[in-house]
C-alpha cells in the first residue's frame, strides 16, 4: 500500500513506525541524549524514537525544538524519517536542517506501531509493503432528515457490536460499485432503495488490511423499515449529527462527511 502526502524535507529512509497520535514538543518532550519520548502527555512516553520512522500529528512548543532535532541527528538518536498529519515550522525546520526525510498530509491512523515502511520524501509518499488494500462499500440510507445505522451483531467477523451503515466487500471482478451497493442493501435489510450519490473513498486500517471504503447515499421510501438478519442486532434512524454519540465502526463520521450529511 502506498500513501501519498507532501514532501517537507527531502530524502528516503526505511524503518519501523512508532506512532504518537498527539502533538510533540522536541524541546522538553524528548530526551535528545537517548532519543526517548519523556513528555507524559504523549502516548509513546518512555519509548525510543531513535532509528524509527516517527509518525505524529504535528509539532508544538518552543522553536528551540528545531535545534534539538539537529542535535539528535548528530548523536544518532534521531528518527530516520518523520511523518506528520500536518507539518508546522518547528519540526519542518528541524528536519530540513538535519537532513531527515519528512512528509506530511498523511493520515497517521492508517499506520500501526512496528509497520515496516519506506518513506520517499522526494516523491512525497510512504510505502507499507505488508499491508494490502481491499475495496468495500458503505451505504447510508436516508429517510427525510434521518439516516439508518445498524448495530453489528456478535457473530460477524469484525467490529462486533459497533454501529455502521450497510456495508460489504468488493471481490475482484465484482459488478460495478453502485449495483453492488443496492444489492447489499437488499440482502441485509430487504429494502429497495435508490442510490442518490457517492462520495470520495475513505481509507481505514484493520490489522494488515487498509479498507478503501466507497460511500453511497441512498433514499428509502417513507414507510419502509429494514428487516435485519443475523449480521445485525439492532437498527436506529438517527439525525446525522447524532453519529458522534454512538460507538461506530472507524470513520463512519468521515463517510457521512464525504456524503455531505455532516
Amino acid at each position: 500500500m502506498r500513501l501519498y502526502g507532501r514532501k517537507i524535507s527531502s530524502g528516503q529512509a526505511k524503518g519501523d513506525v512508532i506512532i504518537e497520535p498527539g502533538a510533540v514538543s522536541f524541546l522538553g518532550g524528548i530526551d535528545p541524549e537517548e532519543g526517548v519520548v519523556v513528555d507524559s502527555a504523549n502516548q509513546v512516553s518512555g519509548q525510543s524514537i531513535a532509528g524509527k520512522v516517527f509518525a505524529f500529528s504535528t509539532g508544538k512548543g518552543s522553536t528551540v525544538g528545531s535545534y534539538v532535532i539537529y542535535r539528535m541527528k548528530k548523536s544518532d538518536t534521531a528518527p530516520v524519517a518523520i511523518i506528520n498529519g500536518s507539518a508546522e515550522t518547528i519540526v519542518a525546520s528541524g528536519a530540513i536542517i538535519s537532513g531527515i526525510p519528512m512528509i506530511d498530509r498523511i493520515d497517521i491512523s492508517l499506520l500501526r506501531n512496528c509497520d515496516s515502511v519506506m518513506v520517499n520524501a522526494d516523491e512525497g509518499y510512504v510505502d507499507i509493503p505488508r499491508v494490502r488494500v481491499k475495496d468495500a462499500i458503505t451505504v447510508m440510507i436516508r429517510k427525510s432528515d434521518r439516516v439508518l445505522i445498524l448495530k453489528r451483531s456478535e457473530r460477524v467477523g469484525s467490529c462486533k457490536g459497533r454501529w455502521a451503515g450497510v456495508s460489504g466487500h468488493i471481490e475482484k471482478g465484482d459488478e460495478n460499485m453502485e449495483e453492488r451497493a443496492m444489492k447489499e442493501v437488499e440482502e441485509e435489510t430487504k429494502m429497495r432503495v435508490k442510490i442518490i450519490r457517492s462520495g470520495e473513498p475513505i481509507l481505514a486500517r484493520d490489522r494488515s488490511v487498509i479498507w478503501r471504503i466507497h460511500p453511497f447515499l441512498a433514499e428509502a421510501k417513507r414507510d419502509e423499515e429494514p428487516e435485519i438478519d443475523w449480521e445485525h442486532s439492532k437498527y436506529r434512524w438517527i439525525k446525522p449529527e447524532e453519529v458522534y454519540d454512538f460507538n461506530t465502526v472507524p470513520k463512519l463520521d468521515k463517510v457521512m462527511e464525504n456524503l455531505k450529511l455532516l
Binding site: S10, A87, T89, A92
Partner: peptide, 10 residues
C-alpha cells in the same frame, strides 16, 4: 532554500 520552500508549501 529547502527550508524557505518547505515553509512556503506548508
Amino acid at each position: 532554500m529547502e527550508l524557505i520552500v518547505a515553509l512556503g508549501k506548508i
